[in-house]
Design a protein around this nucleic acid. Structure first.
Lengths: 215, 215
DNA sequence: GTCTATAGCCGGATAGAC
DNA sequence: GTCTATCCGGCTATAGAC
């Protein structure tokens, strides 16, 4: 099944699969280039370093996802003030559309995002916030408007809880789907997992502050 | 500040700090032994391998936490059927008590748990479920009873969402506390973060099933 | 039990021919 | 742009003296 694309694309395609499955530091350039059937030295020729390859892999998805997500949000806010469930659900379409740009694109993107946030000591976090900051700010703004009873400082925490929920679930989604199949005879794919997690997150983000929070 | 404990303890103490901060695969035995001020070879003498050192580090916490948590649950169920918020809150005391057995014990334990679940391809997950399975089963059982409107298969997912929320939050808690301080002038410690996350998780676990979930 | 020394491997990166 | 060959550093693990 030799891929007939150019070398750069072959590297990106092989790298994203391996990174998503095994994590960044557990994936060597040797493994990537052997799967991609290209020369080891070509990674450094095309990307300069492993770190920049990692960023390029993520950017290829973020450049598609972020504008699409922003557009969905714009559609939503044009017609009124959406609730949280609606906002989160609006992100599902752009997410699932990633399956069209690449095989298993949705799963791979979300797993990469998970790995990226957890593994790297902030350098990917920095990359994402500086390159896609406007999109993120817009999202936070819409969420805050939809839950005006939550002060911004509290919302900061809750959105990071939400990020954690998504990111961990996606990084372990393969294992979880296997267990669900074995223990409950449940067939799941990435979409059904996303549909399960949305009500969980929406409920948590909007829950009224307890006495302990307000103190 | 040379630690006057025995070599084995010195290694464990240094290892848990570094593992929590940097992750397992990013922490070399060389770094551990130099911080512990012991010889490189002593790790293999006392623990056999890096993998077993990782397990020993985690076991030292789990052996304290798991029985304490089970005992809290028993107290709770003896006097009636507790609600979710009460169940989660009952775990806070055993968690904070870890600060008494070791400096920053709570933070370190939760960060280790986070790293452990995400980084390793299932071998730590296996270690935890086989060694502490009874405690975990007991917890799941109590949670299911407190939310009888949620079927077990759905609860499986929601408890893993919850695990993800905790684990990611704790693995990034240092960064999050810094941002909260810079952006909102908020002083937080590990306890206040735990208190914030509990209502979020309790709301998500108990939220009624939507049409999409039931299909 | 603790040390030094080193084996043996694998990683990222590069030089230089083609 | 692509190849081979190699550098060099870091890693885990172990052998063997003390």
């Amino acid at each position: 099944m030799a891929n007939r694309s150019d070398t750069k694309t072959r590297i990106l395609d092989a790298a994203e699969k391996l990174f998503a499955e095994r994590g960044f530091s557990e994936t060597s350039l040797r493994l990537i280039t052997s799967k991609a059937e290209v020369n080891l030295a070509s990674v450094n020729y095309h990307f300069g370093s492993k770190k920049e390859l990692i960023r390029a892999v993520l950017a290829r998805y973020l450049d598609v996802f972020m504008p699409a997500a922003s557009q969905e949000l714009n559609k939503l806010t044009a017609t009124g003030r959406p609730d949280l469930d609606t906002i989160f659900s609006a992100l599902v379409r752009p997410l699932l559309d990633l399956d069209k740009v690449r095989v298993e694109g949705t799963r791979i993107f979300l797993q990469l995002l998970g790995r990226g946030y957890i593994e790297s000591q902030g350098h990917l976090r920095w990359f994402i916030t500086t390159h896609y900051g406007e999109h993120l700010d817009r999202f936070v703004q819409v969420v805050c408007q939809s839950a005006p009873h939550i002060p911004p400082a509290e919302m900061f925490w809750r959105l990071h809880f939400t990020l954690g929920t998504v990111v961990f679930t996606m990084a372990s989604s393969d294992a979880l789907m296997e267990i669900a199949e074995a223990d409950f005879k449940e067939q799941n794919d990435i979409e059904s997992v996303i549909r399960k997690v949305i009500p969980y997150m929406a409920a948590g983000v909007a829950v009224p502050l307890t006495q302990a929070n307000r103190e």
